[in-house]
């Protein structure tokens, strides 16, 4: 499943995308360890698989929580420059910024 969590501001839509099919089987949970905003959590999904998700408490605060790292990605693209995307061994995490 592809899960997109994000927000919209004056300059456009911004999303964190998690490919949970890649997450299944991950045991490192790097995303949860490196995120300074504690945005990520590993939870059992609706199909009984443990996957990365944007934590419930962070879903409406991404604008604020991700602002710390957002600038590190420059103009976006496929390079995994952000702490969370760099820490994800399978490349399950992507950001639109």
């Amino acid at each position: 499943m592809i899960a997109n969590y994000g927000y919209e501001d004056g300059s456009g839509f911004y999303y964190i995308t998690v490919d949970t099919d890649i997450c299944i089987g991950c045991t490192e949970y790097g995303c949860t360890k490196v995120c300074p905003g504690n945005v990520f959590a590993v939870e059992m999904d609706d199909y009984d698989d443990f996957v990365c998700t944007v934590a419930e408490g962070a879903r409406k605060r991404l604008r604020e929580l991700c602002s710390v790292c957002k600038a590190q990605n420059g103009s976006g693209g496929t390079e995994r420059k952000l702490p969370c995307t760099a820490a994800c061994p399978g490349g399950a995490l992507r950001h639109s910024w």
Partner: peptide, 11 residues
Amino acid sequence: GKVLNFIMNDK
């Protein structure tokens, strides 16, 4: 009815 993809906004 299984979810393939979803998008959620902080409206």
